[in-house]
Design a protein around this nucleic acid. Structure first.
Lengths: 126, 126
DNA sequence: ATATTATCGCAACAAGGTCGCATTATGAAT
DNA sequence: ATTCATAATGCGACCTTGTTGCGATAATAT
């Protein structure tokens, strides 16, 4: 399936880019000018993930957050997104701490997905 | 509020203990003998968390997993549960890797909750 | 301009978890 | 042992997050 450049994809990507943080679906919907359907936003985001333009983290609030890949090593690679994310319990901001983390696993264990989130208070809120 | 010893709390704690791993609500419901309501299970587990007998992790599947605290340093302490959890994508097992992790945060950041999950394949499934 | 088909919007659905409220049962006091 | 206050339960309703089916729309190639 070839991807098409649509209004929605452009706007959603722009919101993610200008934010610089990891955003949940509803954050995106707020920050967006036009009115894009919830299902469409999820579909666009999941497409971004498949294409390796974006990575997804599940917060300790159980919600999905999406962020543009900067230092991530290519699409769908194992270990590609093994950095810690920080979620502020006060302002809600979720950011990627650009510090890769090598976690030694026991013998015979194979890592596929890293989902590392620390929450607390960020520098603006502590 | 004083806690009471009930049938449900005893059974749920026993299931967690004999399993040795972190269990989701439905895993507990399967492993349990009697028929305990979903809401009750969640309430019991949340009570255990408040009392520091158990800690909770959100998996990258968005589900809550509960595990008995072994090396965790007391109830509701910051940094008390800062170990990595491993979730097997094949057998579903979620286990605590008993290896504490000191993550250096940027200036001004305060950690409150650690939610560190790596998923992949465990030694039995890889 | 036309055809193909990826994408969208809407609605319905599913799963996970919480909450209100009437009922039950635990543990303490009598 | 009986009574009493109230913690805990079961049931149902509810909310939120996310996904899916399907007909309508619109992006790209010809």
């Amino acid at each position: 399936m070839k991807r098409r450049n649509t209004h929605s994809t452009a706007e959603i990507f722009e919101v993610l880019k200008s934010s610089g943080n990891a955003l949940s679906h509803d954050m995106i919907q707020e920050n967006i000018g036009s009115d894009i359907d919830r299902a469409t936003i999820y579909r666009v985001l999941n497409r971004f993930c498949e294409d390796g333009k974006v990575h997804k983290v599940i917060g300790d609030d159980g919600k999905q957050y999406f962020a543009i890949c900067h230092n991530c090593s290519g699409k769908n690679q194992v270990h590609s997104h093994n950095h810690i994310h920080f979620r502020c319990l006060h302002c809600g901001k979720v950011e990627c701490l650009e510090r890769d983390l090598a976690v030694p696993l026991p013998e015979g264990y194979v890592a596929k997905v890293h989902n590392l989130v620390i929450s607390g208070f960020c520098n603006s809120c502590s």
